[in-house]
């Protein structure tokens, strides 16, 4: 099975960008800020692995 890394990276980047924007906009509300940051912490693992893979494939 071929994995579409470019598409996966793009989608992760989109999610990260949206998450960071929400965290910034609502940083005064701890429930929003911390929950979004927690999601970003999970995304970081995928983002690091996938972007590294992309680099070595290119």
């Amino acid at each position: 099975m071929e994995y579409k890394l470019n598409s996966l990276i793009q989608r992760i980047e989109d999610m990260k960008r949206i998450g960071e924007a929400i965290a910034q906009e609502y940083k005064e509300i701890p429930a929003v800020d911390r929950n979004i940051k927690r999601i970003l912490a999970s995304l970081r693992i995928l983002e690091l692995d996938v972007s590294d893979l992309k680099m070595i494939q290119d």
């Binding site: 994995y3 590294d52 893979l53 680099m55």
Partner: peptide, 20 residues
């Protein structure tokens, strides 16, 4: 769990390790 990483050929894995 992660078929991309777990089946990466050793030479690619070494490149990945170096970057990390």
């Amino acid at each position: 769990w992660n078929p991309i990483l777990e089946r990466l050929p050793q030479e690619r894995l070494k490149e990945l390790q170096f970057k990390k």
